[in-house]
Design a protein around this nucleic acid. Sequence first.
DNA 1: CTGTTAGCGCCTTCAA
DNA 2: TTGAAGGCGCTAACAG
Lengths: 346, 346
Amino acid sequence: MKARPHVTLEDVARSANVSLATASRVLNGTASVRADLRERVSAAAAELAYAPNAHAQALAGGTHRTVGVICHDVSDPYFAAIAGGVMRVATDNGLLVMLAGTFRDPDREVAYVSTLRAQRAAAILLIGSAFEDRAWERAMAAELEPYRRGGGQVAAVSRHRGLKIDTVQPDNKGGAAELAKALVGLGHKRFAVLAGPRRLSTVIDRLAGFSGELAAHGIELREDDVFEAAFSRDGGYEATKRLLAGRKRKLPTCLFAVTDVMAIGALTALREEGLSVPGDISVAGFDDIPVVRDLAPALTTVRLPLEELGERAMDLAIKGATGSRPRTVRLSGEVVLRESTARPKR
Amino acid sequence: MKARPHVTLEDVARSANVSLATASRVLNGTASVRADLRERVSAAAAELAYAPNAHAQALAGGTHRTVGVICHDVSDPYFAAIAGGVMRVATDNGLLVMLAGTFRDPDREVAYVSTLRAQRAAAILLIGSAFEDRAWERAMAAELEPYRRGGGQVAAVSRHRGLKIDTVQPDNKGGAAELAKALVGLGHKRFAVLAGPRRLSTVIDRLAGFSGELAAHGIELREDDVFEAAFSRDGGYEATKRLLAGRKRKLPTCLFAVTDVMAIGALTALREEGLSVPGDISVAGFDDIPVVRDLAPALTTVRLPLEELGERAMDLAIKGATGSRPRTVRLSGEVVLRESTARPKR
DNA sequence: CTGTTAGCGCCTTCAA
DNA sequence: TTGAAGGCGCTAACAG
């Protein structure tokens, strides 16, 4: 009674007294079959709790209905929100999503692409900024290129310069510049920036946009005004403590964290040090992840349409590459001034 | 020059001038092969950018290295944290994770299990509370049972009573009781509760634990002290507004939201209504998702070892069922009193 | 140690 | 409309 571990199409066919081909046809609705046969097959399949073997289907040339999504960290609200958008579109199109978290390890990222390639995933989505690293780019391209030649679709969120792939690009530079302009408009003149690792393109772009705009207003952002730390809440917290330790007296009037997640850590660090926001110092972030509007004070930030970033990327992959050159969808951010920023008193 | 879309093992073998089997052996390290042949094969594989076809491998009896994880909402920090734990263990064991979000649709949940079954996933993990619904249970069991008979592993986080599967069970009831005791200990006597849908086992358990403990202290939690809403930030926000609209004057001294996410919405609603926390009213949540310690005031809650919940569930699945009866791993929560609760003034 | 061969479960022509 | 048969790419005996 525990003969075969899996019920196969053949079992169904036999049980329904029809040929393999007929069973296949009714189960896939792929061709018309006489009503009574159809009936028998369906009944048999239900009776046996038949589930088709997706591997066999894929091997036999059926379609591949799974897409791979690779991001740095699933539990980061930024990625989670984007992943949500991806999943919505994927689900609407009957696609299954495989979500992989690389924990920011470039090698693991390449390894995942390799596995997804093996799975013959219909598409691979790269979410989050690339590593600005020649060797990494080369390794990544070496996986991606044959994958695409084999008919795989690839799309990315955020800039992946070296890789020539379809991209949904949030306007990091422009958004940061707008934010800088708004903050300068409030009267701020002394800034500090909490930045993530400089290898990440997102960090580079936001930093460039911010400091560029400051420069346009005659404000110089010096190298020691930029505090580099891990791209996380703890990174923001730690960098802020470092900042405070260094210059209790000549504090900047405004602190810009390149991501909201870092800003959250910064807010807690400031609170612990007895500094009030925005009374003693203003704080701004970037991304507008869902929770920051619920903070007290609510965080000033640059709103990115996070879910849409994911949706558009999935769209690009589904539509498939038409022309030869990579497409780029640009999505702009919008400065949202909330209570964490105010006119400086000093 | 664009002959076959995919490079196959056979291509590699031919190019290396060896047999299919030999090529397979070196690529899988499955048996020893003469050094020079091994060399030739590896070189050919690299040269052709060969990627094995995972479907063919699976079909041919190779192992299935992917596990499916089903949760309600990927972008909910609670699930994201648990998923993080799952992925860590999965990655350490060379497993790929397919993460599916059901958006709380029971049918979609069943559908995903069906697909995962088709994929011959090595394991299926159900994260989050079950629907207390006979029909749903039946449909789920109908998918799961044949899956397990075929050798599939199943494990869950949170109570799934009807399904007899291995479970990692956070102590919702006990945690809520402990929390109630602590709040009563602070001097609170009038409570209101923000609850999610009563169909979810988690809601039922936490509610039972909380009101049970209150009762033990002679405090009755009446039906109209419980505000049911969506299991989300917006649900908490909306329910709080509803509560406030109903009884501006005889406010409870303490508000318990059955999840932190709902508590976050509640805090914002209270703030908007000009009520201070904990001055005018205390607020407590449940889960201790990462962000709540960074709120101002930091949220009192019941800390659940979220990542561990995921890790243990993955462990259960990997270890495989040994005995015949489902295993249950109980993980207890710990009350964490923070600034959002204080002694009542009234 | 290496090569040959028989499936794994399904889809899809090709005949009947 | 239905059935028979040939792969899809790979692994795992089984011979050499």
